[in-house]
């Protein structure tokens, strides 16, 4: 064929390059991601799960003991309190941040003046760490000098609001601080969702004579389903991680009445020197995330493939 008379580099460009060496720079650049994903995320998690079936104490040891650690875990009073606290905190926090976050976003979306000032105020706690949040609310809820003391000082001597020293309601004291810190974030997501809704929807609902409240409930909220789901997943995965706030505000007290699972894990791994318990507890945390995540992933991504 006359193509044989190619002058320049035709030999090379005529042949399909080896798959491995194609795009080599991109592969090189992705190496940190690949290592992180495989070694730390997958490898680390698998290691921990595997070692939760051993009787590791001070050091990780490959002594298989089946479900012993889990049995001990679920028989532990401290773990039960931790789980119960997380359930209460989680349910309240989910419902309240969603309701309050959406309400605030809807109020801000009503074409008000000073919108950005209000938004700035509602969101600033989210910039602060849980440690700062916990310490600030620890002070405000101080029984002698805080809110309770002030109200009593006004003459209402019998006023009692001392959640941080009452084992029955201490988790709600933590909840107040958590809501203060996190609601602004939900509001921002909701506001972005509301802004993403076509202005024409509002015009159409006005033409159809549907009231504002009804439009929200019947039209806007159903349209924002994906936003709600995303917010829900982000908040839920944040709730399971609840740790710093408790450490700063109550350090699990009074007694062990405000313990949470994440704190249980850290305490057993690094203070009680009972690694096996820590691994088992953290595997339970992982399990709860999977329970939250899998249905969501199925709805989000499984549905798309079928559609």
């Amino acid at each position: 064929m006359s193509h044989a008379e190619n002058p320049r580099g035709a030999e090379r460009s005529a042949r399909r390059p080896r798959q491995l060496f194609r795009n080599l720079n991109a592969k090189f650049a992705s190496l940190p991601m690949i290592l992180t994903a495989l070694v730390v995320f997958v490898g680390g998690t698998a290691w921990t799960v595997a070692h939760s079936f051993t009787k590791s104490r001070l050091l990780p040891k490959w002594d298989f003991v089946g479900f012993d650690q889990y049995e001990r875990l679920w028989n532990s009073n401290r773990w039960m309190i931790s789980v119960e606290n997380l359930m209460i905190y989680g349910v309240c926090s989910l419902v309240l941040t969603m309701v309050l976050g959406f309400t605030l976003a809807a109020l801000l979306d009503r074409k008000i003046r000073f919108e950005s000032a209000f938004r700035t105020i509602f969101l600033y706690p989210f910039a602060l760490s849980f440690i700062v949040t916990g310490l600030a609310w620890q002070w405000i809820l101080n029984p002698d000098f805080g809110l309770q003391g002030v109200v009593r000082g006004w003459g209402w001597e019998s006023f009692t609001f001392d959640p941080l020293n009452n084992p029955d309601i201490v988790i709600f004291g933590v909840l107040i601080a958590g809501l203060w810190q996190g609601t602004g974030f939900v509001m921002v997501i909701m506001l972005a969702g509301l802004r993403g809704i076509d202005e024409d929807i509002w015009k159409a609902s006005r033409v159809d004579g549907i009231g504002v409240a009804k439009t929200y409930v019947r039209v806007i909220i159903p349209m924002m389903r994906p936003v709600f789901v995303t917010a829900l997943v982000i908040i839920a995965s944040g709730i399971i991680k609840l740790y710093d706030l408790v450490v700063a505000q109550t350090n699990g007290g009074p007694g062990i009445s405000s313990e949470v699972p994440a704190k249980y894990v850290i305490n057993y791994m690094f203070q009680a020197q009972n690694l096996g318990q820590g691994f088992a507890a953290s595997t339970m945390m992982l399990l709860s995330v999977i329970i939250v995540l899998v249905p969501w992933a199925y709805l989000e991504f499984g549905g798309k493939k079928r559609g």
């Binding site: 730390v40 490898g43 998690t45 799960v49 953290s282 945390m285």
Partner: peptide, 14 residues
């Protein structure tokens, strides 16, 4: 997906 895994399960291997 790894972003959703609780840090607690990766802390000790790290």
């Amino acid at each position: 997906i790894g972003a959703f895994i609780p840090y607690q399960t990766m802390i000790y291997p790290i």
